[in-house]
Nucleic acid binder design. Structure first.
Lengths: 137, 137, 137, 137
DNA sequence: GTGGTCTAGACCACG
DNA sequence: GTGGTCTAGACCACT
């Protein structure tokens, strides 16, 4: 399910975009599967249909989905590998930016490496953070 | 020196904030040193004084600087260790967010580890990316 | 046979309209011949009967076909010359619009002439474009 | 000046897009020139700002303009040649579609050639069409 | 002042 | 039912 964080500063329509991309990547919707209609999703997420429509439009220009007139939106038949490559490229860009800003703030590469290790080592448990060493302040 | 990227999407005043924080961390300005005046910096960076003023305001609320009426802005007398801890905490939050979004996009922890290693291994050369393995696709 | 391109942006019912007009012009159906019923055509093209019905309606208002209650749709007894003149008029209108928009975009009349020559010179082969000179870049 | 035809069926925001593209191509706005603000243009064309904003967004994704936060929209510094090539490619696609539909309607290549010649030969005079031969019906 | 986002509600074309 | 377009008006962040 897609979750919307209204106070995160991230535009809602982008959260919808990312949420749907994840579901498609995760196999919730296979190639040429029909996505929920704009109105349905808008009701489900208690959003304005325009906001959802904007997300769908974004996904269309990204080539992730396509529309059939009067029938709805469908998952574009790209291979999972293609989409993984796309996702990986985006993450790499973000990692680079993060590293750059961290270095500018004066952190050493070694401490960054440690931080990565700590954060990555954590299991995705909902409650309780095993990395208290990092968390304390 | 602070460099401003007008088309990076990052608000200019935040670029100024980060730039000044780096200079302070780097020792360009010591505790209780006077920072350049808003006007001076605005002229130096060819920015609107309002933008620089907003950055200074932000730095004040962050506790990094303080103002003396009629005299200007001064570096708050925190220890360098304190500021490093602050910076580290911020980076950790960002790393966590990045990891979370990457996992949601379907990347494995192992591939993430690899990406970190690759990007971290890169020397901070300005031009040219040594990590062609990652860059190509 | 009529071919439907679902993702061409052209409304499906208009594709049906044009397809039938071509068949009538081509002599597949002569004056006062009975056209396939809406249901038959819908099944044959795997379309919604509503869509085909709308195409027939359009053709009726265009004067290309007429209906007999309970019997179906029939080709209106216009001469082939009349229909050709109609078709020609429509094409001329489109050509004018195209030229106008091209001129507004800054193309010269001479380059337009060249483009026409190139595109017209192409044989109506289904696959492969002989005009690589234009296509490449 | 941009003119909007409300009853042409063409979405208004696309008319704005094409209008601005023409003005940029025509040199009304040079590289890195500032375009009228969304609100200004909306008032000038008596459109809703949202509609104009959508046109500007479209132009941004097309790479024709770029935004500076808080300052407005500016013409992207592409060469006129690049833009001409783009425009030419689009026109070629349209010409091909037009020819194809004309052939399907039964017109011969020769008559098409004649129509092109007639329409192209016409000078862009506002009133009176010299091509009465084609116009009569 | 600038653009960006969101909501609300309307109308339309299409299937 | 579907999405597409448009308007109106609100609030926000940034310069």
């Amino acid at each position: 399910m897609i979750t919307i964080n209204e106070s995160s500063g991230v535009p809602i329509y982008l959260q919808v975009v990312e949420g749907l991309r994840c579901e498609i990547l995760g196999g919730v919707y296979g190639p040429d599967d029909r996505l929920p209609s704009i109105r349905e999703l808008a009701v489900g997420l208690t959003l304005n249909p325009n906001t959802v429509a904007r997300a769908y439009q974004e996904l269309e220009t990204l080539g992730v989905i396509y529309f059939k007139r009067g029938q709805g939106a469908f998952v574009a038949p790209h291979t999972k590998e293609e989409r993984m490559r796309e996702a990986t490229k985006e993450i790499i860009v973000k990692v680079r930016e993060l590293i750059e800003s961290a270095l500018r703030l004066g952190l050493s590469r070694d401490s960054l490496r440690d931080i990565f290790q700590e954060c990555l080592g954590s299991k995705p448990e909902k409650h309780g953070q095993p990395n208290d060493r990092i968390n304390r302040d």
